[in-house]
Nucleic acid binder design. Structure first.
Length: 555
RNA sequence: GGGCUUGUGGCUUAGCCAGGAUAGAGCGCCGGGCUUCUAACCCGGAUGUCGGGGGUUCGAAUCCCUCCAGGCCCGCCA
């Protein structure tokens, strides 16, 4: 908080001094805490050299009361701001407190939808990119003080589900002992698709199921519900293993049953863009959409887009900020949805799109049975983590080794996914998934565990702030930036920024650890270093928790 | 064909929206470091036309145009 307030103080001081709004203020990199390149743009206006302007501005700014505690200096054309020791000391002490990086409670109610995979087979390594991005954002939003509800939108009446139901009716099913519901549903779904390819005539039976479920035929509704529930129960187990929790599961069919879909369709029918020719569709070509946005079929049944519209109107009216995490394949439909909601005068969602995860042999497909399931991934990574823990800490009891392995595996999986910017498509790689070294979740956990170990051995100590080593200063500087990073993550909805921050903090701590003795130092130096270790430990823990990773105290 | 998006050392990637100070990392490679607070660690080295070309600018990985390559989308599916 302190640093972000300082940022705006410096910004307005600069604006006053140079008389323009854009003051080119940015992170000072390795040169300073903050720096400005405004002298370049002033140089042209004033017809004087940038360095000269910077020097004068530095003098003026140095005399300002509101910048007390900040050292301003000109280095060539650059205007550098160095935050003074008193301010840093306050920030470091703040960083030792639980909840560092959190903000006071806010009024704005937020709803975040993530994962929402079709219940026709287990979550795979593509789906969990959605889960991990979504859950990390959820944790960050909560930490940032927002009242948040996390929702899973259950697509319980799509064609895929009709195929599953048809499969349960028509495919001989031999139970597999110990098989999870979602894997069972996938087995039926894959077999049903194969069968339907052989018997195209049976497709009409699937269509009939879809009509019956929309009209509310009790028997069909029960069969759909039962298939979906079986799959969803499997999802719940996987989601729990991933550390992700939804507050509410919203069933798509509810928006048919409660009349919302009908209501939105009748509202839409009065729009200028609306056309009815048996079907009901919107012409959004004025907004750059070539394709017709069909909402109701000629047989009278609604299309996914119509139910989605009803769902989003419901969210818009009950929350102040609506966030969806969706795959890149939903970009077009998402943009159409946003445009339509705007035309209807409803609050559109902020959509976080993530690009696809594919396998080395090509794209994943539940229908074709070509996917690596999240359960498989977690099992394998946990197995490897257990091997690793056992070879490093053979003296620990088995139960504890299993517990550490579980946490390490989750850290590896979550971090491996969240560290990559969502707009990069990726290829799933077992070697990378099983890597517990640098730029991994376990690496950051390890730094945390090391800090814990020092603090445990230290016993009680007095708080102090007297950094002298460059490694200490670097650590201090990074720790004080944490609240700014959290603010950026929830503003821009970019969880990978937090992943990068945590890894950098671990890097700096490990270097500090190597070069700077803590327990062996004495007097105020020892207390100062222990305070810094405590601040690091706490900041790492806060960041790890926001990433959904357990801050292990030993590993 | 049209739209969206990505292209940064051998591989993976940050930085790009809000243009500036030697383009950061990791893996792999080469060479070092455990009688010292947990070596899942640390230090040093080699490796870069920031996809190609043009433009804007005092200054471009970053902005604009264009071309090339990959991914996604373009259904009365979800």
């Amino acid at each position: 908080m302190m640093l972000s307030r300082l940022y705006s103080t410096i910004e307005s001081a600069l604006q006053e001094v140079c008389g323009q709004k854009d003051v080119h203020l940015s992170d000072g990199g390795s040169h300073a805490d903050l720096s400005s390149t405004v002298s370049f743009s002033l140089a042209k206006k004033l017809r004087r050299s940038p360095a000269e302007i910077a020097r004068e501005m530095a003098e003026t700014l140095s005399r300002r009361e509101d910048l007390a505690g900040v050292r301003v200096e000109a280095l060539g054309p650059y205007l550098n701001f160095h935050i003074g020791p008193e301010l840093l000391e306050t920030a470091i002490i703040e960083a030792t407190q639980p909840g560092y990086g959190s903000f006071p409670a806010r009024e704005e109610r937020v709803v975040l939808e993530h994962t929402s995979a079709n219940p026709n087979g287990p979550l795979h390594v593509g789906h969990i990119r959605n889960t991990i991005i979504g859950d990390t954002l959820a944790r960050c939003l909560r930490k940032a003080g927002y009242p948040l509800e996390v929702q899973y939108y259950v697509n319980d009446m799509g064609r895929q589900i009709a195929i599953v139901v048809w499969g349960f009716q028509n495919i001989p099913d031999t139970p597999v002992p110990g098989e999870k519901g979602d894997h069972h549903v996938a087995r039926i779904y894959i077999a049903a698709n194969r069968e339907l390819e052989k018997r195209p005539d049976a497709v009409a039976e699937v269509d009939l199921l879809m009509q019956r479920v929309e009209s509310g035929d009790p028997q069909t509704v029960r069969e759909f519900r039962s298939a979906v529930t079986e799959c969803l129960d499997g999802f719940l187990v996987t989601l729990a293993r991933l550390g992700a929790k939804h507050d509410r599961f919203v069933w798509e069919s509810d928006f048919i049953r409660n009349g919302d879909t009908q209501r939105v369709l009748s509202k839409v029918s009065h729009m200028d863009e609306c056309h009815e020719d048996g079907r009901l569709w919107l012409d959004l070509s004025a907004f750059g959409f070539e394709k017709e946005y069909v909402l109701r079929r000629s047989d009278g049944t609604s299309v996914y887009a119509a139910r989605d519209l009803a769902y989003h109107i419901w969210k818009a009216r009950n929350f102040d900020r609506v966030i969806d995490v969706l795959g890149a394949d939903h970009k077009l439909i998402g943009a159409q949805l946003v445009t339509t909601l705007r035309l209807l005068g409803e609050r559109p969602p902020e959509i976080v799109h993530f690009e696809f995860v594919s396998l080395p042999e090509g794209s994943m497909s539940t229908r074709a049975g070509k996917f690596v399931s999240a359960d498989e991934l977690l099992d394998e990574v946990t197995r490897r983590a257990y091997e690793e823990v056992t070879s490093r800490r053979p003296e620990l009891p088995g139960a504890q080794r299993h517990e550490i392995a579980r946490s390490v595996a989750l850290a590896a999986v979550r971090y491996d996914i969240v560290k990559i910017s969502p707009d990069k498509s990726t290829v799933f790689d077992w070697k990378e998934a099983l890597d517990f070294e640098r730029q991994s979740g376990p690496y950051i956990q390890y730094a945390h565990a090391r800090a814990c170990s020092i603090l445990e051995k230290a016993g009680s100590f007095g708080t102090a702030y007297a950094p002298e080593d460059p490694h200490e200063h670097a650590l201090v500087r990074h720790i004080t930036r944490f609240p700014l990073v959290m603010e950026n993550v929830v503003r821009d909805l970019k969880p990978h920024l937090l992943a990068a921050y945590a890894r950098e903090l671990a890097d700096l701590f490990n270097t500090f650890y190597h070069f700077v003795p803590v327990l062996k130092s004495g007097g105020v130096l020892r207390n100062s270093r222990l305070t810094l270790v405590l601040a690091t430990r706490n900041t790492l823990a806060e960041a790890l928790q926001a990433l959904g990773i357990d801050p292990l105290t030993t590993m």
